[in-house]
């Protein structure tokens, strides 16, 4: 199956659209299955929409902190060999990925 070139859906959940944004390839049967499952998950979240949050500031973090900053000083990183060892493919010191269409 090819990804559909659907535009952003006006309402509802479209698994094909989300899969395309995430660069995921889904077979027809997977698409149908995931559409149903994800709709169900989203419906749980819908329950939250019923809460009255007017007048409340959005909570971004569980713990209220601010200004956790670092000074501009170099700290050790990882060796290239170690970093590349996790890659499915590497060459010339680069991580190799499928050809990118630019």
């Amino acid at each position: 199956m090819r990804m559909t070139d659907s535009a952003r859906p006006s309402d509802g959940f479209d698994v094909a659209y989300v899969a395309r944004l995430a660069r995921l390839h889904l077979e027809e049967n997977e698409r149908a299955q995931l559409q149903g499952q994800l709709e169900q998950i989203l419906s749980y979240v819908d329950a939250l929409k019923e809460a009255d949050v007017s007048g409340l500031a959005p909570m971004i973090q569980a713990v209220e902190t601010e200004n956790v900053l670092r000074s501009d000083e170099v700290s050790p990183g990882v060796d290239r060999e170690a970093a590349l060892a996790n890659a499915p493919e590497h060459r010339l010191g680069l991580f190799i990925v499928p050809r990118i269409l630019e």
């Binding site: 170099v74 700290s75 990183g77 990882v78 290239r80 590349l84 010191g93």
Partner: peptide
């Protein structure tokens, strides 16, 4: 992160988790 911000190094030598 504390990796150097420098131009022109060998690829993937200024990296960390």
């Amino acid at each position: 992160c504390g990796c150097p911000n420098a131009f022109g190094a060998e690829p993937n030598t200024h990296v960390c988790p």
